[in-house]
Simulated assay, not measured.
Amino acid sequence: MNERLTLDDIRRAPKVLLHDHLDGGLRPETVVDLAREAGYADLPSTDPAALGTWFEEAANSGSLERYLETFSHTVGVMQSAEALTRVAYECAEDLGRDGVVYAEVRFAPELHTRTGLSLEQIVEAVLDGFARGGRDHGIRVGTLVTAMRHQARSMEIAELAVRYRDQGVVGFDIAGAEAGYPPTRHLDAFEYLQRENAHFTIHAGEGFGLPSIWQAIQWCGADRLGHGVRIIDDIELDGDGLPTLGRLASYVRDKRIPLELCPTSNIQTGAAKSIAEHPIGLLRQLDFRVTVNTDNRLMSGTSVSEEFAKLVDAFGYGWDDLQWLTVNAMKSAFISFPERLELINRVIKPGFAELKAEQAD
């Protein structure tokens, strides 16, 4: 009988991350350092351990809007090129140490202009940090530039995505509170990206339900769904637990539209009640294109390995399940098909094969 995988086991596995926010993954000590350097005096604590605890507790509100308020402090200290480069470098370092071999990390350039940086300077500072961090720590990081859905700069940000797509920006995203800010408000940006053959994902089906998902796919043409956890609302279980998929859920599954699920974050924002009750269990059984992500490593106090470990505990997953989820993510990445295939066949599958062989001995 095989023993259940431990967190240390999982950290050794090659992993892929598609949904991670740069301003949600800072080290607490870095927040304190940058605040001191920038003269930012609004932190709730200048003790790194206490600050890390504060971020997690503030995020555990069950409200997406309250969860998003915690970002005022991380964004507040990321207002210089040097700070942005440092945070991006440390992000690559932290992910590499967690066994992540490919990651797509997103950030909103429009949030970092308070001291006069141009959007181009902001993007270039982040790309520099990811490039150097990736080289030093053996990880490839692709960048997603994000527009805030309650603002009106999505076309500018979409144009940035296209301008820098050969320099490390692999796609575009919109984020922020969903209720009252449907993705169709940014339809011109999505139509532009489609004309430019550019990739994009849309935060949908997290704080709002099926209409958000439907608009993201059918009106805006999203390649992936950021979260998409509320697709479960279009799946009914009968008295025997047998599922019936609605038209939208069937479409999402049939078209293999990737779901960027973030289990811990989904619980914090009220999109799921617990890991054991998280829709990922059923969605995986029904063969949706499920991927596992961190969303905000600081606020959720998590890592990709820890997200996997929670699923192992809740659903009894083994190496085959974790490999399936990882390959799903790699298939869904916004880099070229040959690059995805190379990582799947030369890094991911051999890495899991070695771990399976060790477990069998």
Rank of each mutant, 00 (worst) to 15 (best):
L68V: 11
T70E: 10
T70W: 11
F71N: 13
F71Y: 14
S72G: 15
H73Q: 15
T74H: 06
V75A: 08
V77E: 06
M78F: 03
Q79V: 07
Q79T: 08
Q79I: 06
S80G: 09
E82D: 15
A83E: 01
L84W: 04
L84E: 02
L84F: 01
T85C: 08
V87L: 04
A88K: 00
Y89S: 01
Y89C: 02
E93Q: 15
E93T: 06
L95Q: 12
L95S: 02
G96D: 13
D98K: 07
D98Q: 08
D98N: 08
V100R: 12
V101H: 05
V101N: 11
Y102L: 12
E104Q: 10
E104Y: 09
E104M: 11
V105P: 09
R106S: 10
R106M: 09
A108T: 14
A108R: 08
A108V: 08
P109N: 02
E110M: 12
L111Y: 12
L111P: 06
T113Q: 15
T113R: 15
T113H: 10
R114H: 14
R114T: 14
G116C: 12
G116Y: 12
L117I: 02
L117A: 02
L117F: 03
L119H: 07
Q121V: 06
V123P: 04
E124N: 01
A125M: 06
A125Y: 01
V126Q: 06
V126W: 03
V126G: 05
L127K: 06
L127W: 04
D128F: 04
D128K: 12
G129H: 00
G129N: 05
G129R: 02
